[in-house]
């Protein structure tokens, strides 16, 4: 069975924030994750780009409000 976007994204989150118990939820924001600040944010974005082989623009990244937005953006980018 292939992994869903959410499962793959969860793996990226666990790797970047070095926390195997981390479980992402759509309504999750930077405030909910220890170590998610403006510095790690783009490290995360770059890792997501590598995982899903997509390229985000600055405008797309600034528009993200929570994990749900990120999932929606990945879906939009990968379905093209």
């Amino acid at each position: 069975m292939t992994e869903t976007i959410e499962q793959r994204l969860n793996r990226v989150f666990q790797e970047i924030f070095d926390d195997d118990s981390l479980e992402i939820r759509p309504e999750m924001t930077a405030d909910d994750v220890d170590g998610w600040d403006s510095i790690t944010h783009i490290v995360l974005i770059a890792a997501v780009e590598r995982e899903f082989k997509v390229d985000f623009t600055t405008a797309e990244v600034t528009g993200l409000k929570n994990v749900g937005d990120l999932i929606a953006l990945i879906e939009k980018k990968t379905s093209k």
Partner: peptide, 15 residues
């Protein structure tokens, strides 16, 4: 600065 300088800079240098 985080939103209008650091973020665009990081996006440009993320690779």
């Amino acid at each position: 600065l985080a939103d209008y300088l650091f973020m665009p800079l990081r996006m440009a240098t993320r690779k």
